[in-house]
Amino acid sequence: MKKIQDTDKKPILLFQPTSVITAIVPLQPQEEKIISERERFITQVERINQMAEELEAAILELKAISNTLNTQKPYPFLIKELCKNICQYFAVRVPWVKRKSNESFILTTRKVDLFRAEREAALLAQQLRQQTKKRLASQRHRKNNNGAKADTKHFFKKVLVNKS
C-alpha cells in the first residue's frame, strides 16, 4: 500500500484493512401472514366488484338528485329549456368480474338499470289500484246485497201494512 507522508501527521494508508464482523443476512420471509397470489387475486376481484356496486349506487343517487331538481322551481343559472331535464341518460355499464363454474374469471361489464325504481313504483301503483278496485267492488257488492235485503224487508212490511 502506498503511504502518504505529511510532516505534521502520522502516515495515512489509502486502503485500510477492515475486519468483517457481520455478513449480509439473507432475506427472510416475514412472520406475518403471507398471502398467496391466488388470495390476492380473489381479493382484487372482490374489490373491483365492490367498487362497481358503489359506483352504481352513486350513479343512481345522481339520478335521484336530478329528478328532484327537475321537479323543483327553475334555478336562475339554468336555461328554462334545460329545467325540464337537467340530465340525460344513456345506457350505462360498470366493470364486473364474473366467476365461471370452472373457477376461472371473466372481466366484463354489468348494465346499470337506471329506470328500475320507476318501473317498480309503477308496478306497485298498478297493484294498489287493482286492490283498491277489488275492495271497492266488494264493498259495493256487500252494500247492494244488504240494500237488497233491506229493500225486500221494506217491501214485505209495506205489503203487510197495506193488507191490513
Rank of each mutant, 00 (worst) to 15 (best):
T71Q: 15
Y89I: 03
S66I: 02
N67S: 06
C83G: 02
K63H: 08
Q72M: 14
K100R: 14
N102K: 03
P74G: 10
Y89A: 01
K98W: 07
K73R: 10
Q88W: 03
P95W: 12
N67F: 11
I65L: 13
S66P: 01
K100F: 08
C87Y: 03
T68P: 00
N102H: 04
I65S: 08
Q88N: 08
M51I: 07
E53G: 08
I86M: 07
A57P: 02
F77L: 07
P95Q: 09
Q72K: 13
C87S: 04
P95M: 09
S101N: 10
I79W: 15
L82M: 09
L107V: 11
E61A: 13
P95Y: 12
R93M: 09
K80M: 06
I65Q: 12
T71G: 07
N70G: 01
W96A: 01
S101F: 03
Q72F: 09
L62P: 00
P76D: 10
I59F: 15
L60K: 15
I106A: 08
L69K: 09
R99E: 11
L69P: 00
K73I: 02
E56V: 02
C83Y: 07
M51F: 10
I79H: 15
A58F: 10
I59E: 08
W96H: 13
Y75F: 13
Q88I: 01
F90K: 11
M51Q: 13
A57I: 07
F90E: 09
I86G: 00
L55M: 14
L107M: 09
R99N: 02
K84R: 12
N70Q: 11
A57M: 12
K84P: 00
E103G: 02
L55H: 06
E81F: 05
E81M: 05
I86A: 04
Q72Y: 09
A91Q: 13
K63P: 00
K63F: 06
I86K: 09
P95E: 09
A57N: 12
K73H: 04
S104C: 05
E56C: 06
V97I: 15
A57V: 06
Q88V: 00
R93D: 07
F77V: 00
S66R: 07
E54A: 11
E56D: 05
P76K: 14
M51G: 04
A64F: 02
V97R: 13
E103I: 03
Q72H: 09
Q72D: 06
E103A: 11
L107N: 02
I65V: 07
I86H: 11
K63L: 11
K73P: 00
C87T: 04
A52S: 15
L60V: 04
Q88K: 10
F77W: 15
I86Q: 05
L69M: 12
R93K: 14
F90V: 02
Q88H: 06
K84L: 07
N85V: 00
A64I: 01
Y89G: 00
S101A: 14
P74V: 06
I79Y: 14
A91E: 14
T71L: 15
I65E: 11
I106C: 02
K98V: 02
I65R: 15
I86V: 12
L60W: 14
F105T: 01
L78E: 10
E61C: 04
W96N: 03
I65F: 13
A58M: 12
F105R: 06
